[in-house]
């Protein structure tokens, strides 16, 4: 089984991009050959999908990579260092890279993981995406689907 996991906060502007992509894919029934799941803030639940029978996991999330807002990158956890100031292992912190690290230490089978990171524009208490990210939704969705389908 392949999984697409969306992370973020729906009420904090572009932080919700991953959730909105997953929501769209579920609503349009585009998740026929894989399971699309809204993890919201519960990054630790990623480990529920780390099993031998899991073929691949794609995570879609807002990621500050120091590039222009709206731009995106696809990368593996091994490609990056997290430098988010962390106040500990909480659902609030929600650092998926730390969760993967915890899973490895606990002996979980970590399948191939690809992260589609989208550089956010607006991070504020609003229920909508910024116009910039909204205008590129189609592109993000097709890139997400390609990332899930692509063979590792």
């Amino acid at each position: 089984m392949r999984y697409l996991l969306g992370l973020g906060n729906y009420t904090m502007g572009d932080d919700s991009i991953g959730l909105r992509i997953v929501e769209h894919i579920i609503q349009e029934n585009l998740d026929r050959d894989f399971r699309a799941i809204d993890l919201s803030a519960n990054a630790m639940n990623l480990l529920f999908y780390c099993a031998e029978e899991t073929e691949k996991i794609v995570i879609v999330d807002a990621v500050d990579m120091g590039i222009s807002p709206g731009e995106f990158r696809i990368f593996s956890p091994e490609d990056v260092d997290s430098f988010k100031p962390s106040t500990g292992m909480t659902t609030h912190e929600s650092d998926i890279l730390k969760v993967i690290q915890l899973g490895k230490k606990l002996g979980y089978t970590i399948p191939p993981i690809r992260i589609l990171g989208i550089q956010p524009g607006t991070m504020a208490s609003v229920m909508e995406l910024s116009p910039l990210l909204q205008s590129r939704m189609k592109e993000y969705i097709s890139t997400t689907l390609s990332a899930v389908i692509e063979t590792e």
């Binding site: 906060n9 009420t11 990621v63 500050d64 990579m65 990158r73």
Partner: peptide, 12 residues
């Protein structure tokens, strides 16, 4: 509150 949950990364 549930604040933002985005990642902050630097490419190796």
């Amino acid at each position: 509150s549930c604040s933002t949950h985005y990642l902050k990364v630097r490419f190796k």
